[in-house]
Design a binder for these strands. Structure first.
Length: 586
RNA sequence: GCGGCGGUAGUUUAGUUGGUUAGAAUGCUGGCCUGUCACGCCGGAGGUCGCGAGUUCGAGUCUCGUCCGCCGCGCCA
């Protein structure tokens, strides 16, 4: 049907007969001669339909409209002097058409392909038209190349690609599950996997040694610009290995994946312990493309004469006083902007945002009077203040201060436009705590199958885990851990999490059993492929890198999913809806 | 669940203090045009102003409710 792709034709083909297929990108009817830009995945080529060459083809060309599907047969000709188009890869040649076949017509499109201004809602409703844009094709081409590079890298390292079930068992912890009703077992449900976590551990018990999968995962939580209810992980697990082997394999794989996307990245990546990341950047996924680290001020504030601050500063275990220096901030930001900073951090629970300005004659600010001259000097010294600098500080509960000062750090960096573009700054965040306490309840920070590094420590809050996250430019790209492979440790962790023996056996009995039958030490990691593609394609939304994404209300506006179903279907599944109006019929 | 922004021809949008027939660009369409490539020129059609109430002599504009889209918070082991 086709001799080559549109944009593959060039000067070397002059005089040759070609047969090209594609869509009408645009047409220009001059009354006599008609020009058609034919488009396929490779690009554009100009067709010329001149009645002098073929009255038949010209007649057909008269009826052609945008996005008609054509098969054009003709010969390649060099364009005349002054008639070339430097904006087109094929701009030096054109196709003199002697046979034009309209393979399929097209209704008028709801929007013009490549029109950058069209709203996303319209684009998503007609996503297949949006995908015709060369820009869309490039994104999915890159995604394909990256995925294949990951496969090849892992294959070369002896990993076996194994598919794990999509219909699986609902688990109590973690995100909300998507449930699938069982027809055969009335009243019972499968769950879609939040990740293949337990199955990949079972594959290690099965002796496969190294497993990977490009796995779809499902989490029924609210959406964000970088979160969809179904997403893809590059998931891997390896036996008789610890953190270092997983990190080494991951770095190798990432190097290949980024190379496939045209980026040379340097390994090994830097590492930062979790606590240091929190103390310096207020985040477990710090963006290290810029510094702007927080400075600890708690000692100095403990000595100040303002009771609110000194009281906060006395409890160094629970509280923090953190400062962010803005070089030359006094000259960059207006009074009004600085007031706005306080409003910004208040949204995240801050009760206020103090500041000092570094003037010619020393530190100035509403709180300066509470500090001794020596301590003011000390503030200047520890934060290396120069005239014109401004220093902001937050005080209070450490988790709160880390959070809002960490967000403020990013906010400032964006405002000051100090974030370098076209740079990939990878960092491994390591040495995570095993648990976090929320509203008095103890929760696994990573997941309950993570190996503690100090299982015998008395205070569970002091327990650390062998877990690691890979962070790129402030985005969590992936995470993993060394897993528990001994049943007694797993049972102990369940106990600490407040999961009873009974519940543990009901929900995870199969895992506890498996651990009893010679489970090897094993460790693994999973990457968020969609987020990786966002970064590789510089896309502002995860929807851009997913062929058929869902809206923020988790709907697909193309297919109208989710949708009501017949009562008959529900009956088979032994399901009765509370609100009967929601079914389509009966 | 909460906060912010938005919804007006197919598309992108303007619309003042509530006041005449809701305007533009682009797309579409009819005609003309043999070298354009964002072709050009002349003409034409195209609007439940998201939806529903309310206030008013009169609502795109004001009020209330509701739906949808986007961003964020909560949530996301």
């Amino acid at each position: 049907m086709r001799s080559q792709y549109c944009a593959e034709v060039d000067e070397n083909n002059v005089g040759e007969a070609v047969s090209l297929c594609g869509w009408v990108n645009s047409y220009r009817d001059h009354g006599g001669v008609i020009f058609i830009d034919l488009r396929d995945k490779s690009g554009l080529v100009q067709l010329v339909c001149d009645p002098a060459d073929s009255t038949e083809a010209h007649k057909v060309a008269n009826e052609v409209r945008d996005e008609f599907v054509l098969i054009a047969k003709g010969r390649v000709r060099l364009r005349g002097e002054g008639l070339t188009n430097p904006n087109l890869k094929t701009g030096k040649i054109e196709i003199v058409v002697d046979e034009l076949i309209v393979e399929n017509k097209s209704d008028v499109l709801p929007f013009v392909i490549n029109d950058e201004k069209v709203g996303e809602e319209t684009l998503l409703k007609y996503r297949y038209l949006d995908l015709r844009k060369p820009k869309s094709y490039e994104i999915f081409k890159l995604r394909s190349k990256a995925t294949i590079a990951a496969r090849n890298a892992l294959d070369a390292q002896g990993f076996l690609e194994v598919e794990t079930p999509v219909l699986t068992k609902s688990t109590p912890e973690g995100a909300r599950d998507y449930l699938v009703p069982s027809r055969v077992h009335a009243g019972e449900f499968y769950a879609l996997p939040q990740s293949p976590q337990l199955f990949k551990q079972l594959l290690m018990v099965g002796g496969f040694d190294r497993y990977f999968q490009i796995a779809k995962c499902f989490r029924d939580e609210d959406l964000r610009a970088d979160r969809q209810p179904e997403f893809t992980q590059i998931d891997l697990e390896m036996s008789f290995c610890g953190q270092e082997e997983v990190i080494a394999v991951s770095e190798d794989m990432l190097k290949d994946v980024f190379a496939a996307a045209g980026h040379d990245i340097q390994t090994p990546f830097n590492r930062i312990p979790y606590m240091e990341a929190m103390e310096k950047y207020g985040s477990d996924k710090p963006d290290l493309r810029y510094d702007l680290a927080m400075v600890d001020m708690i000692d100095i504030f403990a000595r100040c004469e303002n009771e609110i601050f000194s009281n906060i500063a006395k409890d160094t275990k629970k509280n923090r006083v953190k400062a962010l220096k803005v070089p030359n901030g006094d000259n960059i930001f207006s009074k009004r902007q600085m007031k706005g900073f306080e409003d910004y951090v208040r949204k995240f629970g801050a009760s206020g945002l103090g500041y000092f300005q570094m003037k010619e004659d020393g530190l100035k600010g509403p709180l300066a009077k509470f500090f001794s001259a020596e301590d003011l000097e000390q503030i200047i010294k520890v934060s290396e203040l120069k005239v014109g600098d401004v220093i902001f500080f937050g005080a209070g509960d450490k988790h709160l201060v880390w959070d809002y000062m960490g967000r403020f750090r990013i906010y400032l960096a964006e405002l000051m436009e100090i974030i370098p573009e076209n740079r990939f700054e990878f960092v491994w965040v390591v040495d995570f705590p095993m648990f976090e306490v929320e509203e008095g309840k103890i929760k696994a920070m990573h997941h309950p199958f993570t190996m503690p590094s100090n299982i015998d420590v008395k205070d569970p809050e002091e327990m650390m885990s062998i877990a690691y996250d890979i962070v790129l430019n402030g985005t969590e790209l992936g995470g993993g851990s060394v897993r528990i492979h001994k049943p007694e440790i797993q049972e102990k962790v369940f106990k600490l999490l407040g999961i009873s023996d009974e519940e543990a056996h009901e929900k995870f009995g199969f895992l506890l059993d498996a651990l009893k039958f010679g489970a090897p030490p094993h460790a693994g990691l999973a990457f968020g492929l969609d987020r990786m593609m966002m970064l590789l394609t510089d896309s502002p939304s995860i929807r851009d890198v997913i062929a058929f994404p869902k809206t923020q209300k988790a709907q697909c506006i193309l297919t109208q999913a989710p949708s009501p179903v017949d009562n008959e279907q529900l009956k088979e599944l032994s399901i009765r809806l509370r609100d009967k109006k929601r079914t389509t019929t009966n």
